[in-house]
Amino acid sequence: MKKEISKDIIEKWLKGWSLSRDLPLPFQYRSGFKVKVGDEKQKIRYVFSELNEDFLQLAESIDEPWVFLKICVPFDDFKDKIPERWQIQPQGYMMSCFHRMKIPDIELHDDYKLEFESYNSTFVVRIMTKNNELASTGRVVIVEKLAIYDRISTENNHKRKGLATFLMKQLEQIALSKGVSQNFLVATEEGKSLYESLDWELYSLYTSIVIPSET
C-alpha cells in the first residue's frame, strides 16, 4: 500500500527550510508550493507531495536553467514523462522522528566548545574548536509544533568524532524546551545513516530535477 504523504507536513518543512535560509516564505502554487530562492544556481523551487498533471505541465513548460522541480516520488515514476532537458540531482530523503530521538549519552570533548545564535524562529548551534575553527553546525526551526532540522554539517577534518550526534542532541534539547518533540528533515545519502542511528525513519524519497545551464 502506497504511503500517503502529508501536504501539511511538506508545507511546514518548506517554511522551516525558507526561514532557516532567510528566504521568502513558500506559497501555494497549483497543487504544490513555490519558493523564490533567488540564487544563481537555484532561482526558484517548486515542491510537490505527489505526481500529478501540475508537476508534469511545469516540467513541460519550463525551459530556463536553475529552476528546480522537487517531488516526493522516485525518479523512475516520471522520468519517461518529462522532456530530456531535465537532469536528476543527488537523491534526497525526507526523514521523520515523531518522538524523542534515541541519542547515546555523550559529552563534548574538551577540545571543543558550543556557540548559539537565533533568528527567524531559527536556532543555530555551532561546535567550535578552542581556536575558533568551525567543526560542526546545524539549525532547528520550530513551525507549528514541528521541529525542522536544516544545514547539518561537519567539517571533514572533524568527522567520526561524534560531533554530529552531539549537535543533534543540542538541537533536540532546544526543540524540547519549546514543547516540540516531532522532528523532520531532508537528508543526503551521506547523512541518512546518522539519522537512522538516532531512530529517525524514512518518510519519503525527495527527488529533484533541474535544467542546468548550457555549457
Rank of each mutant, 00 (worst) to 15 (best):
K2T: 09
K2P: 14
K2N: 13
K3V: 12
E4R: 15
D8F: 13
D8R: 13
I9P: 02
E11P: 13
K12V: 03
K15A: 05
L19I: 11
S20Q: 04
S20R: 04
L23S: 07
F27V: 07
Y29L: 00
S31V: 01
G32R: 03
F33Q: 01
V37D: 01
D39N: 10
E40S: 13
K41N: 15
Q42I: 12
I44T: 03
I44K: 04
V47I: 06
V47A: 06
L51C: 09
N52F: 09
E53W: 08
D54Q: 05
D54A: 07
D54Y: 09
F55I: 04
A59Y: 02
I62K: 01
D63I: 14
W66L: 09
W66P: 02
V67T: 05
V67Q: 10
V67G: 05
F68I: 09
V73A: 06
P74T: 01
F75H: 08
D76V: 10
K79V: 08
K81C: 08
P83G: 11
P83V: 08
P83I: 00
E84I: 08
E84V: 07
R85Q: 15
R85K: 12
I88L: 15
P90A: 02
M94L: 07
C97G: 04
C97V: 13
F98K: 06
R100H: 09
R100F: 14
K102D: 15
I103K: 10
P104Q: 10
P104F: 09
D105V: 14
D105H: 15
D105G: 13
E107F: 15
Y119P: 09
Y119G: 10
S121D: 07
V125D: 01
V125P: 04
R126G: 06
R126I: 07
I127H: 01
M128Y: 02
K130L: 08
K130N: 12
N132C: 14
N132P: 02
A135N: 05
A135K: 00
S136H: 12
G138E: 01
G138H: 05
G138C: 00
G138I: 02
I142D: 00
I142T: 04
E144D: 05
E144P: 08
K145I: 11
L146M: 12
L146E: 10
L146G: 08
A147Q: 08
I148L: 07
Y149C: 02
R151A: 02
N156C: 14
T165F: 14
Q170L: 05
L171P: 00
E172Q: 09
Q173G: 15
Q173R: 14
I174L: 13
I174Y: 07
L176W: 08
G179Q: 03
V180Y: 03
S181Y: 14
Q182L: 03
N183Y: 07
F184H: 06
F184P: 03
V186C: 01
A187P: 00
A187T: 02
T188D: 04
E190P: 03
K192E: 12
S193P: 05
S193N: 12
S193G: 05
Y195S: 06
E196V: 15
S197G: 11
L198M: 14
L198A: 06
D199L: 11
W200N: 02
E201A: 15
L202K: 15
S204Q: 12
L205W: 05
T207R: 12
I209P: 04
P212S: 11
P212H: 06
E214I: 14
